[in-house]
């Protein structure tokens, strides 16, 4: 076993990333296995590396996956069989042949009654689970219809993902603003997801597509509610090559051309 702690912080990230070759990895692991301090650092490095997953383009699973999962879960839930098998028969009471016959029958009767109740309860439970499942599926279908369009757009190879950030020197109130635009020039489809503070009462935000040639094209006017994300999807003229996307603060209802300060800008690299 090696006694030395790994000397550099990045060693933990490289390990969590799986980049170390066999010999290095084994040396690292043999130390960490017996060092609580380093094990904690590995847990943190795993977290830092794990979030790289967010660089993946969004792909929603088909609703069938959840449905199959929930069926599997409900099927695996403990049925009444388990409890029934554990029901102990009543001890027989001594007292002549009739008493013995009756005593023999009692546990059977009790067990039968118990089984009936359990089956009824189980049935109730299943009905409830089924109703829940149906609700979930209906709800999912609605959500799916809403997101399918966006998912289709994202899956397109030509779709670009453009992050928008607040400009240097913007007022403190807008410094936290950020957004993401998905844009498919071929289809002219665009979505906007973003967060900005509420606009002043006499203002609206306006989203612009700035083309390589020509004047900015308005892609929508919006007024986010306090603290909430804004989501928009719009159809623009197809075939426009974008240079950047931007959000400006305009008089309520928007303007034909940008007039106010740009609060978010996302250049296309």
């Amino acid at each position: 076993m090696s006694i030395e702690h790994p000397t550099r912080m990045e060693d933990f990230d490289l390990y969590a990333l799986g980049a170390l070759d066999d010999a290095e990895r084994r040396a690292f692991e043999s130390h960490v296995a017996s060092c609580a301090e380093c094990a904690e650092k590995v847990a943190e490095a795993r977290g830092r590396v794990a979030i790289l997953a967010f660089a993946s383009p969004p792909v929603a699973p088909s609703p069938g996956v959840k449905e199959t999962l929930m069926r599997q879960v409900i099927a695996s839930a403990e049925g009444p069989g388990g409890s029934f098998a554990h029901a102990k028969p009543e001890p027989a009471v001594d007292g002549g042949i009739f008493a013995r016959w009756w005593a023999g029958l009692l546990p059977v009767a009790t067990a039968f009654a118990l089984a009936t109740v359990l089956l009824w309860l189980h049935n109730e439970q299943l009905n409830r689970q089924l109703a829940d499942l149906r609700n979930t599926i209906t709800q999912q279908k609605q959500e799916l219809a809403e997101t399918r369009h966006q998912a289709d757009l994202i899956a397109e190879r030509e779709t670009m993902v453009v992050p928008l950030w607040s400009q240097k020197g913007t007022p403190e109130s807008h410094a936290e603003g950020h957004a993401r635009v998905l844009y498919n020039a071929k289809e002219g489809m665009m979505t906007y997801d973003g967060w900005l503070p509420s606009a002043p009462a006499d203002k609206s935000y306006q989203l612009w597509l700035v083309p390589m040639n020509g004047a900015p094209i308005s892609a929508g006017v919006f007024n986010p509610r306090n603290g909430e994300m804004s989501h928009m999807m719009m159809k623009l003229p197809a075939g426009v090559t974008a240079k950047e996307f931007a959000v400006s603060l305009e008089p309520v209802g928007g303007m034909p051309h940008p007039t106010g300060p740009m609060v978010l800008v996302g250049p296309i690299s």
């Binding site: 997953a53 967010f54 660089a55 993946s56 383009p57 969004p58 792909v59 929603a60 699973p61 996956v65 959840k66």
Partner: peptide
């Protein structure tokens, strides 16, 4: 599920 589906597909 969405977060996991994205990385699994990637």
């Amino acid at each position: 599920a969405g977060m996991l589906s994205s990385v699994l597909n990637r």
